[in-house]
Design a protein around this nucleic acid. Structure first.
Lengths: 238, 238
DNA sequence: ACACCGCCTTGACATAGGTCAAGGACAACA
DNA sequence: TGTTGTCCTTGACCTATGTCAAGGCGGTGT
């Protein structure tokens, strides 16, 4: 985030931020009061926004690009927790953690633009607006739920089941039981999200293709039968 | 929870609940208003308090005993997420999840008594008390952080590192670099928390004992050198 | 005192997934 | 058009951890 500058009060970005559920419900006056505190940052691909352990100055809204949250093991191995695209916020929960340190590292997967919302400004606002408080609670609890599901996947499911679940999650529209998804992320990032090695991902995809559960076509994956794919979860349950 | 009854307004259990950080800050009137909604439940060992997928009626405070939160894989395998002992609350986040369904199963590890706090009663209260809202946010974010750490452990650390981290976490007081911990849970539950099989836990403990990092004595584990144990994390980092 | 029953341990063996190493397919760029 | 770098794939092999099976040990009820 080499350059980071205050936001124009009439920036179109502001309108987009306003539509996010954490801001949409705010009174106009409250939102306006927040604006002068916001800053926009530009990140080059692979640039780190913050490291795990950095003091948490605020949370972020993604305007463009993708930001990856994850951590690195002492041995240098990297694990991606989640990737946030345009229109999503991240790190909002850190505001309320005892030690105000980011627990994960945020790195740009692609060139990206983010808006930073300083913690204090938002907390002030929450004190005035119980509804905003409730929405944030819902938001954080949603994240918590997502993490619980991830733990379940990482611990009681095998790699193939996780991959199948991932593909099913990615499906947006189904037409006559068929669907096509576009992998919006490099495969090694997907592998990391699934806690497997790229080699394993590659092999699993090939196996599933050989079973006609999916059709591979570069970054495009075709699922000829969504129900068939779902059923394949039961045949190899572990 | 075969019998579950309203709480006596002068029950000593009430005083203990009042000291929990989610209740300690409440105005006396607010707390009193809550009391008639509370119920106490008695659970026999292994009894299930709620199943994953049950509608979430409320959250719980543990008076006595231990309650385990976890899930079962389709193949019957069980994974323990966390165990809550006396004085802790659990499932408070479910209140704010979109679908109000418990995402995990709660089961008594030992005979136990719990207080149920109905969702609606508590939410009403939050609307009146922004500070209570903040405390709940802090609480939920703490859980979120704990889950992130657990994901890290489950994915980038190996079984031995997880066990070492667990032992270090359990240490309460250190005297001249030595400590003794009491395993408050059956070993198979510890194994499940660490996402390993009981056999593996048993073997790892034996190996660590043979390296003089720990001394085993039934449910008591002695750590002759806490720093030595910490250092052992670096020598086998993966 | 005995038999039973969880729970834990131990050994022999199996395997999912990781590691290492060698290309291959593109895209960016000169 | 060649060069380079990034990502992906594939094969051969390895290992941490799981699985299966057989006791052992301590508590409880009769």
């Amino acid at each position: 985030m080499l350059d980071s500058c205050a936001m124009d009060a009439d920036s179109p970005a502001l309108g987009r931020l306003r539509q996010h559920y954490l801001f949409a419900g705010l009174a106009e006056a409250d939102f306006r009061a927040l604006v002068p505190h916001l800053t926009v940052g530009h990140l080059a691909r692979k640039e780190v926004l913050f490291h795990r352990g950095d003091p948490a100055v605020g949370f972020y809204y993604v305007l463009t690009g993708q930001i990856e949250l994850g951590f690195v093991a002492p041995n240098g191995e990297k694990k991606t927790l989640e990737v946030f695209g345009a229109g999503r916020t991240f790190a909002e929960a850190v505001t309320f953690m005892r030690r105000q340190l980011y627990p994960v590292t945020a790195q740009a997967v692609t060139d990206a633009q983010v808006v930073r919302i300083p913690n204090q400004a938002y907390v002030d606002l929450l004190y005035r607006d119980p509804d905003a408080c409730m929405r944030l609670l819902a938001d954080v609890c949603q994240h918590l739920h997502a993490r619980v599901i991830e733990i379940e996947r990482a611990t009681v499911q095998n790699a193939r089941t996780r991959l199948t679940a991932f593909i099913l999650d990615e499906i947006e529209e189904v037409e006559q039981d068929a669907a096509t998804i576009e992998l919006a992320l490099p495969k090694h990032v997907i592998a990391s999200k699934l806690s497997i090695k790229p080699e394993t991902l590659s092999r699993l995809l090939r196996v599933m293709a050989s079973e006609n559960l999916i059709v591979l076509n570069g970054a495009r994956v075709n699922v000829p039968s969504v129900n068939g794919l779902k059923k394949s979860l039961h045949s190899s349950p572990a």
